[in-house]
Every structure is written in structure tokens, then in C-alpha cells.
Write a protein that binds this DNA or RNA. Structure first.
Lengths: 116, 116
DNA sequence: ACCAAATATGCACCTATAGGAATATTTCTG
DNA sequence: CAGAAATATTCCTATAGGTGCATATTTGGT
């Protein structure tokens, strides 16, 4: 999980994934679309591959890269408990309460029933 | 978006968010639970705060921190187009096709109608 | 006002990483 | 096998980030 975040933190890598969302692409295509040097793209692809975010196959001298969704599913899974927070509007409630009167409150309303 | 990924890449910061999911907490509580030095926790909290992932209010000498879900919603939104890929099982299809015959395919099947 | 408690900040050190330029590697073509 | 096309790797440098330690800051109590 840590690695996935680190890898996705790089803007050009996210751009690569964006492009690959449209389908398999050779490296040169990515170089053209991103306007980044070929070595830089290759390095990012290596990083992405090692993180399992892309995979490649060879076609003559070219390497065709495509997306792998598995790590993104992990990310989605990581996000899930947080998603529940805003979907249940629990955070809205919290924010509302604290916005009303920030100084005089104590912590009663802040702790969920599931204390520890 | 970039910043959110960078900030979430740090394991201790994710652990902080995990704890805050249970409700507002003072810094000392986080220090105890994480087993990380107090200055380290404070710095992480600062980073999280600047990224909008937490907010704090003062209660006497303590600062109570709580989660902010907004950046996580952004992350969720970023993830959405990718989620569509695996939910529609499009990625399975791609992988299947390329597994069948890796060498003889050309790029017709790789490009989406929305070329650029 | 002074001391203690809780938290934040500054500094130094180390490690990881992105990018550029040059070069190595792989694979096709003839 | 030679040469070209496409991609990968290496070396270098600059920069950012995490941690520990010491210290500054804020706030409450008496």
C-alpha cells in the first residue's frame, strides 16, 4: 500500500495511467503524449511495473504497456472505511457541531461508541 | 491531488488517519497509540493539516485533531474512472485477449474510439 | 508571575528519488 | 552480420522528506 501511494504521487506517472486507461500503448506513444524524455518515461514505467500498476508485453522492438487494476483496487479498499464516514454524513455532523460552538464543547460528542 | 498522495504515502500518517477515524483525538493520544516521538507526530499532523486531511481545535493546552474527508473524496473521485475499468471487467477482457495471442495482435483493439 | 503540561518548531543527518545526458540492450530488416 | 529503431539502464546531481534531539511556544493552575 505504501508503495502504491508513493508511485501514484508522481504526476507524470498518473498521467501515464490516464493514457493507459484508453488502452495498451507503446512507450513512444507515451513519450509523445506526455512531452517527457524517453528515459524518464522508461523509468516511470519501470516503477509502475514494479508496483504492479502496469504490465508489458513485447512486440518487435516495442514494448506495449497496459494497466493493471489490482493495486488500484487495493487503494479502493483502503479508502472504503473512510468512504463510509462521508457517506453516512458523520463528518458533516462533526463539522457542524464544532462550527456551532468551538470553545465550550468537551469531548463527549467527539468519541464514537467504539472507543478503542 | 499530488500532495494528497504524497502525504498519504507515509505509513505513520495513514495510521494517524486510522486512529482519527474513531473520532477526535489529542496529540498525546496519537503519540501513545503510534509509538512515535511527539515531535514526529506533530510534524505529521502539520503535514496532514496543510493537506487538508485533518483540522484541529484548541482545548486548554491540548489540540484536538479530527479527520477531514474532503481530500479523500477527491482521491475517490480520481479513482472513479479506474474503478469503472474493473467494474465493467474491461481489464479482464484485455488481459484475456492478450493472453490468447500475444504476438500476432496489432493495436486495433488497444485504442479506444476516443483517440486523443 | 512562575511552574508545569502539552504541543510545535529548528537544526542536522541521512536516504530516496526525479531528471538529464550518454550509453547499453534488444529486435527487426536486409 | 551491419545498421537502425525502440526501449532500458547507468551515472550524476539536486532536492525533498523523515527522524532524533534540543528548544521554543502556548495555556492552565496556583
Amino acid at each position: 500500500m505504501e508503495r502504491v501511494f508513493e508511485v501514484l504521487a508522481e504526476p507524470n506517472r498518473r498521467r501515464i495511467l490516464d493514457v493507459l486507461r484508453r488502452g495498451e500503448q507503446p512507450v513512444g506513444e507515451l513519450v509523445d503524449r506526455l512531452g517527457v524524455s524517453q528515459p524518464a518515461v522508461s523509468k516511470h514505467l519501470r516503477t509502475l511495473r514494479e508496483a504492479g500498476l502496469v504490465e508489458s508485453r513485447s512486440q518487435a522492438q516495442r514494448r506495449l504497456y497496459r494497466l493493471r487494476t489490482e493495486p488500484l483496487r487495493d487503494l479502493d479498499a483502503w479508502l472504503e472505511p473512510y468512504r463510509m464516514l462521508w457517506e453516512s454524513r458523520l463528518d458533516d455532523l462533526e463539522r457542524h457541531l464544532s462550527a456551532m460552538d468551538d470553545d465550550h464543547r468537551n469531548e463527549e460528542s467527539a468519541r464514537s461508541p467504539d472507543g478503542d
